[in-house]
């Protein structure tokens, strides 16, 4: 667009607020989304850890080395009942002696006589990896219902992490939507204030026969360009900060956090400035078109 034809816009046309608002919004959205993506990537890893089935041990001998006899079967019944009514548990099954033997082969060899060993009974619990049971709670319940039952606990915190991360991801989605709504509302008010400052220009070009769509498009592109330049500033500032945070997390969390993003995810992040500028275009378009209806 040559400077000569920029008669619609004067010095006040570019609202100082618009590019900075876009910069800030893109900055926040990019960082939040990048955080969400790395949590998302890690989540898969964590879920895999949780998905490997849980086991519950029921002791067959007491602390003094005496067989607990019938008590074992009562404990197993209670544990199964509890497990099968716990949300997130897909199934629970007592391993029989053959299966136990299979498990023991790597350690004891095929000759071992299982029945002569003071092995505990094992309950194999399969778990819904996407919605794992609240293991902390399950552990407590189990200890109350079946004293002496042991839930292997190394996955408990991992399952908690999955819960926490899922909640964080929903929150991030919600925040990103809020940020975009904020962009739309801000652009609407900014545009309205631009229009009322420039009403004399609009009124004149309208009377000279400028069509609504012509004025509307000019405004939409004008704000789009302003928003895009601001957006890129926000994006460019966000990138080194993202790398810094990534380095820091790597150093404190080791392999736990999968912080490197895939090419697709990078592609999505690069779309953020365009999305904000696009939203600005669309909102400006709607606002100007509505505003122009006040002219006969």
């Amino acid at each position: 667009m040559s400077k000569k034809s920029d008669f619609l816009f004067n010095k006040e046309s570019t609202h100082f607020f618009l590019p900075w608002m876009c910069a800030l919004m893109v900055f926040m959205t990019t960082l939040i989304l990048a955080g969400g993506m790395s949590i998302h990537n890690s989540l898969k890893l964590w879920q895999k850890g949780v998905a490997e089935s849980l086991t519950v041990q029921i002791a067959t001998y007491d602390d003094d080395g005496n067989s607990r006899g019938e008590l074992v079967y009562r404990d197993i019944e209670n544990a199964l009942t509890l497990l099968r009514t716990t949300p997130g548990v897909l199934g629970a099954m007592v391993l029989n002696d053959d299966q136990m033997q299979e498990l023991m082969v790597p350690w004891l060899g095929t000759d071992a006589v299982i029945s002569q060993l003071p092995l505990p009974k094992l309950i194999d619990v399969s778990v819904d990896a996407s919605r794992p049971p609240m293991l902390e709670q399950l552990k407590a319940d189990l200890e109350q219902a079946v004293p002496g039952a042991i839930l292997d606990s190394h996955r408990i915190w991992l399952a908690d992490l999955v819960h926490f991360a899922s909640a964080i991801l929903s929150l991030i989605g919600f925040i990103v939507i809020l940020l975009f709504i904020t962009v739309a509302i801000t652009v609407m008010y900014t545009t309205k204030s631009m229009l009322s400052i420039q009403e004399h220009i609009l009124d004149l070009v309208h009377m000279l026969g400028a069509k609504d769509l012509y004025i509307t498009n000019r405004y939409a592109w004008h704000n789009f360009k302003t928003a895009l330049s601001g957006s890129f500033i926000g994006f460019v500032i966000a990138i080194p900060i993202m790398f810094g945070v990534t380095m820091f997390l790597k150093s404190v969390s080791g392999e736990l956090l999968q912080s490197s993003l895939s090419a697709t995810q990078w592609g999505l992040l690069i779309l953020v400035p365009f999305a904000v500028a696009g939203l600005t275009f669309f909102t400006t378009y709607k606002t100007v078109l509505t505003y122009l209806r006040k002219f006969v």
Binding site: N10, V205, Y214
Partner: peptide, 19 residues
């Protein structure tokens, strides 16, 4: 109703530019 941000030439040119 001249536009103050345009000089005399650009004010007069307005209808032609719109066309």
């Amino acid at each position: 109703r001249l536009l103050n941000h345009l000089n005399a030439f650009d004010n007069v040119a307005l209808p032609l530019r719109l066309a």
